[in-house]
C-alpha cells in the first residue's frame, strides 16, 4: 500500500519532468533541440525558447501548483470537493483588488511587492472572510449554503469589476477583459521571479500542515480533540492561500477550476491522505496547467486562446459531475 503510493508519486514526478522539458519545444515556431544550447548567440529560435517559452512554462507550472494546492486546502477545510478559491469567490475578490489598483492608478509597492499583488491579496483575504463568515452563521452549514455564498461573493466582485470597466476608457477596459480570461503571455523571467516566493512560502506551509488537513477533513470537533488549534490553522491556511491566489491572479489573471480538478483527480488514484495528496496535487496541478497552456498557444496557431478559457471548458462539466456525484452519494470528500 505504502509502496504503491510512493510509486505513484515517483511516476507523477517523472511525468512532470517530461512535461516541463517537452513543452517549451512545442509551439508555432519549431525549435530544434540543438539550437537552444547555443548560449549567448543571437539565434532567433534560442531567443524564443529562453525568453518566451521557458518562462511561460515555469510560470504556468507554478501557477497550476499554487492554485491546485490552495484548492486542496480549501476542500479539506470546508469538507467539500466543490470548495475552492475560484468557486468561493476568492479569485474574484483578488481580481477586483487588482482591477481596482490598476484603475485607481496610485502606484506603490511594499518591500518590493508590487501594489497590484498586495491589493489582490488584501481583497482575496476579505472575500475569504466573507464566505467563511457566511458559512459559520448557521450551525452545520450545507453544500448549498456554501456554494450560494460563493456565488454571491463572485457576483458581487464581478459587478464591481464591470463597474470599474464601465468607468474606464476602451483600451484599458479591453486589457482588463483580456487579463480576466487568464493567460501566461509573459516576456522574460521577471514576473516568474516575482511570483515564485509566494508559491514557495505558501506551498511549504501547506506541506507542513498535512496532518492538520487530514483531521480537519474529519471534523472540527475531532480535530480540536486531537490537539489541532483549528482557529490558528485555518487562519494560516486562509493567509497563505490568499497570498498564492492573490499573486497568481494579479499576474496571470483568474484561472479557474485547476484548484478543483487537480486535487480531485489526484484523490482518485492516491487516496485522501494529505501526506501523499499534497505533493501529488502540487505536481499534477502544475503539469496539468502547463499542458493546458501549451494547448492554448498551439491549438489555433499562430493565434492563441486564453488558457482560462481552456480550464473553464474542462472545469465546467467536471464541476457538474462532482455536484451530481456528491448529491447521490451524500459523501463529503471521496
Amino acid at each position: 500500500m505504502k509502496n504503491r503510493k510512493a510509486f505513484i508519486l515517483i511516476l507523477l514526478g517523472v511525468f512532470t519532468v517530461v512535461v516541463l522539458v517537452m513543452s517549451p519545444f512545442w509551439g508555432t515556431e519549431h525549435v530544434p533541440f540543438g539550437s537552444v544550447l547555443k548560449a549567448g548567440g543571437e539565434d532567433a529560435r534560442a531567443n524564443i525558447f529562453w525568453k518566451f517559452r521557458v518562462p511561460r512554462v515555469v510560470a504556468s507550472f507554478c501557477a497550476g501548483a499554487a492554485l491546485a494546492i490552495s484548492g486542496m486546502a480549501f476542500q479539506a477545510m470546508f469538507r467539500n470537493p466543490l470548495a475552492t478559491p475560484f468557486t468561493l469567490g476568492v479569485s474574484a475578490g483578488a481580481a477586483f483588488g487588482a482591477t481596482l489598483y490598476i484603475q485607481v492608478g496610485v502606484l506603490f509597492s511594499v518591500l518590493g511587492i508590487p501594489g497590484k499583488t498586495l491589493s489582490a491579496f488584501a481583497w482575496a483575504m476579505i472575500s475569504v472572510m466573507i464566505v467563511y463568515g457566511l458559512t459559520r452563521t448557521r450551525r452545520g452549514f450545507t453544500t448549498a449554503t456554501m456554494l450560494v455564498a460563493g456565488v454571491a461573493v463572485n457576483f458581487f466582485f464581478s459587478s464591481f469589476i464591470m463597474f470599474i470597466q464601465y468607468l474606464s476608457d476602451f483600451t484599458s477596459s479591453f486589457r482588463v477583459v483580456r487579463w480576466l480570461m487568464g493567460g501566461f503571455e509573459i516576456v522574460g523571467f521577471d514576473p516568474v521571479i516575482r511570483f515564485i516566493p509566494f508559491v514557495a512560502i505558501g506551498s511549504a506551509t501547506i506541506f507542513m500542515l498535512t496532518n492538520e488537513l487530514n483531521l480537519l477533513t474529519i471534523g472540527d470537533d475531532l480535530a480540536l480533540s486531537r490537539g489541532v488549534r483549528i482557529i490558528r490553522v485555518k487562519a494560516i491556511i486562509f493567509i497563505v492561500t490568499s497570498l498564492m491566489v492573490g499573486s497568481a491572479v494579479s499576474i496571470f489573471g483568474p484561472i479557474g477550476f485547476i484548484g478543483m480538478m487537480a486535487p480531485h483527480i489526484c484523490r482518485l488514484f492516491i487516496g485522501p491522505n494529505h501526506r501523499h495528496l499534497a505533493p501529488a496535487t502540487f505536481l499534477f496541478g502544475g503539469a496539468f496547467l502547463v499542458l493546458c497552456d501549451t494547448f492554448a498557444r498551439t491549438i489555433i496557431s499562430p493565434a492563441e486562446i486564453p488558457v482560462g478559457v481552456i480550464t473553464a471548458i474542462l472545469g465546467g462539466p467536471f464541476f457538474l459531475w462532482l455536484l451530481m456525484r456528491g448529491s447521490s452519494e451524500k459523501s463529503v470528500i471521496s
Partner: peptide, 21 residues
C-alpha cells in the same frame, strides 16, 4: 460522518498530539 480515510489512517490520526509535521 462520512470520511474517505482507511481505518488504519483514522487510527494513526489519533497519534496527532505526538507527531511532528
Amino acid at each position: 460522518r462520512s470520511v474517505p480515510f482507511t481505518v488504519g489512517e483514522m487510527v494513526v490520526m489519533g497519534r496527532y498530539p505526538h507527531l511532528s509535521p
